[in-house]
């Protein structure tokens, strides 16, 4: 589904990603773990097209997407939830969520909305409220629902649990499981390894722009939890 080959991302002089190769197979959930500045967001941003790649190749669903505009990548079926609760503050909750579903027609949007509401009843309760008025955790949920609303084939979640209370982590985990049941591929980043490891099939530990260890969840669990305290 997603194949990243020798990916480099540099900002001016900083090498954020320095040669990463990884694949995410159809229906799999892959976790990127690493401390601050490891290059996780840079990698995710390179996939959606918000960070320019300086070297390497990104293949998605048979397309070489490395030089496509980010809206074209999104329309190919990549859903993206950015780090740090980026909602459209003045738009309503419902409009925020449906902003992720621009590729769907009216009836599909309704169905997509109904499905998300079934997982997150909170969205229906607050649908007409401006998203900027929500709490941080609620905004995070809106951003994730927005990424899911376009029925992506690949879902990119950049630190979905950052700063969230256990109840919210659980809600989001349930939604991710549901996406997995629908056969959707997920690539997510997390510093807090524990709840994320419960969702993933396999993971990669990143440090200094490189993958240091890879493997199935049970293989890397110990190292991942150690990384959390680095």
């Amino acid at each position: 589904m997603l194949r990243i080959d020798d990916l480099h991302v540099t900002y001016g002089g900083t090498r954020a990603v320095a040669g990463v190769t990884l694949t995410v197979d159809q229906g799999q959930t892959v976790l990127l773990i690493g401390a601050n500045g490891a290059g996780k967001s840079s990698l995710i941003n390179a996939v959606i097209g918000l960070a320019k790649i300086s070297q390497g190749k990104i293949m998605f669903d048979g397309h070489d997407i490395g030089s496509m505009s980010s809206d074209a990548r999104a329309r190919l079926g990549i859903g993206y939830s950015p780090e740090g609760r980026r909602v459209f503050a003045s738009m309503t909750v419902k409009d925020n969520v449906l902003a992720g579903a621009v590729t769907l027609n009216g009836r599909e949007q309704v169905r997509s909305w109904d499905k998300l509401v079934a997982s997150f009843p909170f969205l229906a309760e607050r649908q007409a409220q401006a998203a900027g008025e929500l709490s941080g955790g609620q905004q995070q949920l809106v951003a994730i629902a927005r990424a899911m609303s376009g029925r992506p084939k690949l879902l990119l979640l950049d630190e979905p649990f950052l700063g969230l209370a256990p109840v919210w982590i659980q809600q989001i985990s349930i939604a991710v499981r549901q996406m997995q049941q629908d056969g959707i591929t997920v690539l997510m980043t997390e510093q807090m390894a524990r709840p994320a490891l419960k969702l993933a099939h396999s993971g990669h530990i990143m440090r200094g722009g490189l993958i240091r260890r890879s493997g199935a969840v049970h293989e890397i669990k110990g190292a991942a939890l150690a990384e959390e305290y680095l």
């Binding site: 097209g49 505009s69 980010s70 074209a72 999104a74 329309r75 459209f88 738009m91």
Partner: peptide, 17 residues
């Protein structure tokens, strides 16, 4: 409204700004 608020974010959601 999405593009007015944040056109980069809007593009990453599939809107051709």
């Amino acid at each position: 409204a999405a593009i007015e608020t944040n056109d980069v974010l809007a593009e990453s959601l599939g809107l051709a700004a």
